[in-house]
Design a protein around this nucleic acid. Structure first.
Length: 223
DNA sequence: CGAGCGAAAAGACACCCGAG
DNA sequence: CTCGGGTGTCTTTTCGCTCG
C-alpha cells in the first residue's frame, strides 16, 4: 500500500446520472463522456510517464464526485468511484495507510513538478491588431459591446444591466492589459479603448484613483 | 548643447445630481 | 433641502524631445 500513487479524477457533476450498458448518462437521457474513460486515459499516460522517468510504482486511480447534489443510479459495485457520502471515510482510510515519506518520494515529487507544463501548447490565440478591434465597453452580464454611459451609470442596451462607470472602465482596463500586455495604460489609450466615455478627464481621474502613476505629463502611464 | 515646444497630469472651481 | 462626491472646463505646471 505504501508504495503506490493515488490518482484522483475529481468531478463536480450536479444532478442525477446513471449507468446503462457501460455508458454514462445525465438525466434526462443525455450521454456524456464517461469519467472512467478519462480516468483510464490519465492513468495510462501517468503510467507511461513514470516508466519513462524510471519509476515503477503502481497507480491507484479513482473518480471522485465531490458535489453533494450528485446522485448516480445503477452504479456497478466494482467501479473505482467515490461518492460524496464516502469521501470522509475514504480519507480516514487513507490516513491509516500512510507511510513515511522517503527521499525517493521527494525526488519523484520534484521530478513531476519540474515536468509540469505551465503553458498549454494546444492553446491557439487568434491574431489581432488594435485597429481591427471594435472599441467600447463590454457588458458585464451579456458581453455585448452595447453599453452606453448615462450619468454615473453604464447601461447595456441589450440586457439592461447597470454598472458604475468606474467599475466598467476598470474592467475594460483589465481587458486592455490582457490583450495588449506590451502597451502602456495611459489616459489616451483607455479613452480610445472605452470610446463610450466621452471625457478624458473622467478616464484620467478613474485611472489615477485606481492605479499608480509612473512618470509625469505626456510620458505618464499607469500600472 | 540648450532653448523652446508641446502634451498631458492635475489643481481650482463651479456645477450637477442623487441619497437621506 | 442639504450634503458630498463626481464631473466639465479652464488653467497651470512641468519635463522629454526636437531642432538649430
Amino acid at each position: 500500500m505504501s508504495d503506490a500513487i493515488y490518482l484522483f479524477e475529481v468531478k463536480n457533476f450536479e444532478g442525477d446520472f446513471y449507468y446503462q450498458s457501460n455508458r454514462f448518462y445525465m438525466r434526462p437521457k443525455t450521454e456524456i463522456v464517461d469519467p472512467l474513460i478519462q480516468l483510464k486515459r490519465t492513468e495510462s499516460l501517468l503510467s507511461m510517464l513514470l516508466q519513462k522517468i524510471g519509476y515503477n510504482i503502481p497507480i491507484n486511480a479513482w473518480v471522485v464526485f465531490i458535489n453533494s447534489e450528485f446522485t448516480l443510479y445503477q452504479s456497478p459495485l466494482d467501479l473505482p468511484l467515490i461518492f460524496p457520502t464516502q469521501i470522509n471515510r475514504f480519507l480516514k482510510q487513507l490516513d491509516t495507510n500512510t507511510s513515511k515519506v522517503s527521499q525517493k518520494h521527494r525526488a519523484l515529487a520534484e521530478k513531476l513538478c519540474s515536468l509540469h507544463v505551465q503553458d498549454n501548447p494546444y492553446k491557439q490565440l487568434p491574431s489581432y491588431e488594435y485597429d481591427q478591434l471594435r472599441k467600447g465597453i463590454a457588458c458585464d452580464m451579456c458581453n455585448g459591446l452595447l453599453v452606453l454611459v448615462e450619468g454615473k451609470k453604464c447601461i447595456c442596451t441589450k440586457c439592461g444591466h447597470h454598472e458604475t462607470v468606474e467599475s466598467a472602465v476598470l474592467r475594460s482596463v483589465k481587458e486592455f492589459k490582457l490583450l495588449f500586455p506590451n502597451e502602456r495604460v495611459t489616459t489616451n489609450a483607455i479613452f480610445d479603448w472605452c470610446k463610450v466615455v466621452t471625457s478624458k478627464r473622467r478616464i484620467n481621474r478613474i485611472l489615477s484613483k485606481n492605479y499608480k502613476i509612473v512618470g509625469t505629463h505626456q510620458w505618464a502611464y499607469y500600472e
